[in-house]
Write a protein that binds this DNA or RNA. Structure first.
Length: 425
RNA sequence: GUGGGCGUAGCUCAGCCGGUUAGAGCAGCAGACUGUGGCUCUGCGGGUCGGGGGUUCGAAUCCCCUCGCUCACCCCA
């Protein structure tokens, strides 16, 4: 057993894992850029207060899930970002977009950190890919984003994703609903789980989300938030649904709420049946309240985040995990050790000509070199032995059909650089 | 924070009613095929049996402690 392992909840992404993750990231990048979203990279470390102000001091993220870093001069706590939205929004404000060019579409990707007990699909360092459209209240934007998220899952190969939708109102109508909800739940307050009894005063809305039987029962009787929406929220929701592309596998989720405080109106989650109880592969919503929480003016915005690890699990469940392809390219093989330097020079010549090329560095037998070439998925083996070296040639073997030919080295290199053998597949 | 499961080779695991040299498959290396991959066969290397203590003539096996991993609950993208 090695002396050092990754810390609990942290994992080494080996090349095969990194390739899978990169595949998702590149799919997202292509898709999002096509829709006008530009990549933004806020820092991984922010002032703890940023998340306390935005996510809500009562949210679990803030209460117990943040990784804090003591600052040297005791100026306050720093934290590893537990989610992407606040940092993106802070960057938007900091850059002055609100004044110069208020409507901006961003995407971001990278690691997030939460101090949770690790389990399947949940790590302390996990990865998200998210988008944020800041500056517009347009319900068509909600539709664009919900659809875009779905398109991402579709593009990576998932076929069983469903979209859960709800509206949770705004600062104008939600307080009245919260009161209605409290009134409705008062009678059954004693039957609620301990956590929900606590939530009753602190964050009633979250009771809707509770999975404990007594709470779901109590909640089933309670009035729906959809019936308490103000006119503005109602018309926003209506326009959003009209705009939303038909054919999306949508489920109404009248009790869907979010764990973070800044959401308003549209909320949604993407679910996958292959993940069990914790079936979300991504989620998001509108957060018109975030700008004010950061001390600015009200700036409407909407976005979502994709859980990368959850998405990979879903792909695995559908049997669609992409198998990382071989390195391709050319593997240069030396017949005996005296040819190693020539083989090395030939390899460098190929690389300098823009061709993917490699060779053995373990002093292995010819046969083993051939095996290694095959194992790594090379397309051609270039064999260099005393005969070839004295003739200034190289023997080229195609792995696909085993055919061989001998060419002068110079000619072979220029041919390879024109018609690269490392073309995909 | 709470509960369950599991720690034996690089990986997946067998062995565990105590008993000689701790095994298999895969992977690795080498050979059969003396300058040729995939398939096959043969051989080789590789183990503080997570760690510590205890019981015993004898512990991978039984007991205690400890560390680690994992799954679930909680909560959550």
């Amino acid at each position: 057993m090695p002396s050092f392992q990754p810390l609990p909840g942290f994992v080494d992404l080996l090349p095969e894992d990194a390739a899978r993750m990169r595949h998702l990231e590149e799919t997202a990048r292509t898709l999002f850029e096509r829709c006008g979203y530009r990549e933004i990279r806020p820092p991984l470390v922010e002032d703890a207060a940023l998340f306390e102000r935005t996510s809500g001091a009562t949210s679990d993220i803030v209460q117990k899930q943040m990784f804090s870093i003591p600052s040297r001069d005791d100026a306050g706590a720093f934290v590893l970002r537990p989610e992407g939205t606040p940092g993106v929004f802070r960057a938007y404000l900091e850059a002055g977009y609100a004044k110069t060019n208020p409507f901006q579409k961003f995407f971001y990707l990278g690691p997030m950190f939460r101090y949770e007990r690790p389990q399947k699909g949940r790590q302390r360092q996990f990865h998200q890919i998210g988008i944020e459209a800041i500056g517009s209240p347009d319900p068509h934007l909600d539709a664009e984003i919900v659809y875009l998220g779905y398109r991402f899952y579709e593009a990576v190969g998932l076929r069983q994703v469903t979209v859960l939708l709800n509206s949770i109102g705004c600062a104008a109508c939600r307080p009245a609903y919260l009161q209605t909800l409290r009134n409705a739940l008062t009678a059954s307050l004693d039957t609620l789980c301990a956590l929900c009894r606590d939530r009753f005063g602190r964050n009633v809305l979250r009771i809707l989300d509770c999975k404990n039987a007594p709470c779901t029962q109590a909640v089933a009787q309670a009035p729906r938030i959809a019936d308490s929406l103000c006119d503005d929220c109602r018309s926003h929701d209506r326009a959003f649904r009209i705009a939303l592309k038909a054919g999306l596998p949508i489920s109404e989720a009248p009790r869907l709420v979010r764990g973070l405080d800044y959401y308003t109106r549209t909320v949604f989650e993407y679910h996958h049946p292959g993940l069990g109880a914790r079936s979300a592969v991504g989620a998001g919503g509108r957060y018109d309240g975030l700008g004010e929480r950061l001390g600015g003016s009200a700036i409407p915005a909407v976005g979502f985040a994709i859980g990368v690890e959850a998405t990979l699990l879903a792909l695995e469940a559908e049997g669609k995990l992409p198998e990382p392809g071989g390195a391709g390219g050319i593997f240069v093989v030396y017949v005996d050790r005296d040819c190693r330097t020539d083989a090395y020079r030939l390899t460098e010549g190929l690389r300098n000509a823009g061709v993917t090329a490699d060779l053995d560095h373990m002093g292995r037998s010819l046969k083993s070199q051939m095996k290694a070439a095959d194992a790594r998925g090379a397309h051609e083996i270039w064999i260099l032995g005393p005969d070839e070296i004295s003739a200034g040639t190289v023997k080229i073997k195609r792995l696909s059909d085993g055919s061989e030919k001998t060419l002068p080295v110079v000619e072979a290199i220029s041919h390879a650089s024109r018609a690269p053998a490392d073309a995909p597949r």
